[in-house]
Computed example of a mutant assay.
Amino acid sequence: MRIVAALGMLALSAGCATTSKVEYRVITSPADMKGMTDAFYMRRSVLELSASNVPAGKTDVETTIAIQALPREAQSLRIGVAAHRGFLSTTKINITKVENTDLVKSIGVETTDETVNRINQIGGVAVKLIQSAAMLGLGNISCLSPADGKQIFELNPTNGSETFKTVRGNCITVTYGPLPKEVIRVQDLPKNTATSLYYYSACRDADVVIQQTDDVVRREKIRVSDPAYLQYVEFPLKGKIEHHSQCGVSVTTEAYTATNPADIVGALTAQGKAIKDALEAAKKDEAK
C-alpha cells in the first residue's frame, strides 16, 4: 500500500504546474563547460553614425545622418546554459546566435527554431534619419561629414551621460534614461541552480544629441543594452524567445499538450491493481 501511496504522490506532482527549466554557469575554464548545452555573452551596445549628402535642388544638398545602436558582445562575462533534466520533466533548448558572434539571437524551448527573422552580422538595427540643409561647399563646418565615413562610439550606460568627439570636435552627447524597475545586477544571476527564467542585458533609452552645425541641433532616441544589469522573462513550456534588433526580447508560446488527468488516474489504477495482484500471489505462495 505504501507503493500505491507513493504512486499517488507522484500523480499529484505531475498535476502541478510544469515550467521549463535551465541552469546557468559562469564560464572561466574548459571544465566549467561540462554538462552545458552552450555558452554566450550578454549584450552591450555601440553607437554608429554615418553621414551622406543628397541633392536638394539645383544648388542645395541635405546631409542625412544615420544613427544606429548596434549589439556587441560584453566579453567580461561568459555564461554557460544547460537544459535542466528533472525527474518528471526535461527541458530541451536550442540556441540560434547572430552569425560570427556569441550573441543569442533566439533561444527555442522544446522546439527547433528555424523561422527567426535573420539579423545581419552587425545586429539588424532600426535606422534613424535626420537631415540638415546646407549650401554645397558653404555654411558652418558640420559635426559629421560624408568624408568621415562610419564612426563607432563605445557606449557605457553606467556613466549616465557621455560626450563623444569627432574629427571636428566634441559635438555628440548621449544621455541614458533610468533602468527598468525589475532589473537585477549581473552579479546576482542565479548560478548552478534550476530556473525557469531567461536573463538578458537590461534595456535603457538613450537620447542622442548631435550639434551638426552652430545653428542646427538634432536629437534622436535609441534603445541600448546595459550588461551591468539584467532583465528577465519566463521560458514558455514550448516556444521561443527572440532578441530585438536594438534591445529587448519577445516571447512566442506554441501549443503545449498537458498530460490528461484521466490518463494519470488510469495509469495509477492499473499500477495499483498490478501491485495488489502481485502481493496476493506472493501470500498464496507463502501459504503453500
Rank of each mutant, 00 (worst) to 15 (best):
R168H: 15
D60V: 00
V26L: 14
I122M: 00
T253Y: 04
P261I: 11
M42Q: 08
E254W: 06
V224L: 03
K165V: 07
L103S: 04
Y232D: 02
V217K: 13
G160S: 01
T173W: 02
F40V: 10
G169V: 07
G137H: 09
P236Y: 03
V233I: 07
S250A: 06
E62H: 04
Y176C: 02
G86V: 02
D226S: 04
D32Y: 11
A31F: 09
L138D: 15
V224C: 03
T175A: 12
V125D: 06
N100M: 09
D205Q: 13
T257D: 07
E280V: 15
I241Y: 05
R44V: 01
G248S: 05
G177Q: 05
I3V: 07
Y256W: 15
L237K: 10
R43L: 08
P190W: 13
T269I: 15
R85E: 13
T37F: 11
L197Y: 13
A278K: 14
V183N: 04
S20I: 05
N170L: 04
I65A: 03
R204K: 13
I67P: 00
C16K: 10
M42Y: 15
A255P: 03
T28F: 06
E242D: 07
D214W: 06
C171V: 05
T259M: 11
N192Y: 06
A228G: 02
D285G: 07
R44A: 12
Q211T: 10
S196G: 08
S132Y: 10
D226L: 03
L12G: 05
V61T: 01
